[in-house]
Write a protein that binds this DNA or RNA. Structure first.
Lengths: 252, 252
DNA sequence: ACAGGAATTGTTAATAGTTAACATGTGAAT
DNA sequence: ATTCACATGTTAACTATTAACAATTCCTGT
């Protein structure tokens, strides 16, 4: 039915930020390009996307893509982020208190979430704005100074906020993982916040892109034994999988 | 010179939200359409606009329209908000510590600001994301729970944050003003934050839409004597202007 | 002041994407 | 079974965009 296809096209564009018509033609080989055009026209009228020559862009994405550094990162490994987000979203159930980290993987996750009764804390303003679309979801932001590169809030206030809060599930993104250094990231304050979150959360779900496995970043914020679930877009290298199992980590 | 034209084209698009190439050709009859195309291409690379078939759209405008979909405001009195923002932006000078309020008027202001060394505090995540585009501007968000209607953070944390902060200029938006009730708004927690800000700020610039004069909202957060400057899109009614003068308020 | 080079602008033709109009198919309601 | 509405497909006409090259202007160093 046309609605399913339109919904799926919309989801794809929201996750990827942008499509070419040729790409849609590949993904939907049993409908004509004219139909896909009409779908885009429909989504444009709905205010979800904006059509450009040769394809379309997500409006939500555009607002977010104002920062060059950020943009660049968003376009790397889109498929991986998409896959990880799809796995992560399946773990979310209503009536919980969540932490959702900053970063593009988490933004993908936020975009795939549906309207349900949740209490969500995040240090990322763009993710907060995405989540607030769902009427039943309560969203809180940690305060603090906004890092232009990572779009993350940090500082005394951010950490202070977390201390008085209970978290059922924490979805944390790592910029790097190695057996030696564990999960690490590139910003001192972010690492500090992640560490605190991991200490407070009942369940820690770590998300890491397969291309980041066996790499290191300056600040380690967790080890395998601190996480309950590890999500990656591809199968983990055997050595890493073995270590994870030894630490009792569920691999998705 | 090409830069002047590009700047002027950009301003035109930002104000109007959207242009057709044909329209630009009329406005700039002494350059070829190819040059105008190249200008649009340049502005697109700068992240100001997005090119669509036959013309271009302002990205800022698009994000605003997107927000309007959630908040259902903004379509009201766009002209007024633009006028107010234009007046307000002229008061901003480098090397200051500012507070910029939430709301669509403030969003307009944020969009018109330029890159300069500023420290800005705001309770509005959308405004923070707008301001962070300027590399020299340091942006902080008050933490707290995000109000879906007003896109404003509030709660214990928001107020706590402000207490340890110095503010040179506070740009505050009011949803209503009347001689009896002063400046008021529709949310208890927002009013509380505004009150605190006004107490702490060295200079208070109040912005109010002419259509909101002589109206009331439930929560009063300031009186004329608390503000230094009052910005409105049109001339104030004589009675209000007189009162303002008596309280030593500068009217813009 | 002037030569050389870079940046900007203009012109045209080829290309590619979009639209419009009409044809076909599909399914639900009467 | 017929009709109507709606989604889809097909084609051709149209329009905007790009690319490539030419002309011009605007600097900069001598």
């Amino acid at each position: 039915m046309s609605n399913d296809r339109r919904k799926s096209i919309d989801e794809y564009i929201q996750a990827k930020g942008e499509v070419r018509l040729a790409e849609l033609e590949e993904r939907y080989p049993n409908v004509s390009s004219m139909t896909l055009r009409r779908d885009l026209e429909y989504l444009e009228r709905m205010g979800k996307i904006i059509r450009i020559r040769g394809g379309a862009k997500s409006i939500a994405h555009l607002s977010m893509v104002k920062e060059a550094a950020y943009t660049q990162r968003m376009h790397e490994n889109t498929e991986a982020k998409f896959t990880i987000a799809a796995k992560a979203v399946s773990l979310i159930q209503p009536d919980r208190s969540l932490y959702i980290d900053s970063g593009t993987t988490c933004m993908c996750l936020a975009q795939r979430m549906s309207n349900m009764n949740l209490y969500v804390l995040t240090p990322a303003p763009n993710i907060a704005l995405e989540l607030i679309r769902h009427p039943e979801t309560k969203v809180s932001l940690t305060g603090g100074q906004l890092n232009r590169e990572t779009l993350t809030l940090s500082g005394f206030n951010a950490t202070e906020f977390v201390k008085n809060l209970n978290i059922d599930q924490a979805f944390v993104a790592a910029s790097a993982f190695s057996a030696d250094s564990g999960f690490s990231c590139g910003d001192f304050y972010e690492a500090e916040l992640k560490r605190l979150i991991i200490k407070k959360a009942r369940e820690v779900i770590m998300m890491v892109d397969s291309s980041k496995i066996n790499t290191n970043m300056p600040y380690t914020f967790a080890r395998l034994q601190n996480v309950n679930t590890l999500i990656c877009d591809e199968a983990l290298p055997a050595a890493v999988a073995k270590l994870a199992q030894q630490s009792g980590v569920t691999i998705l």
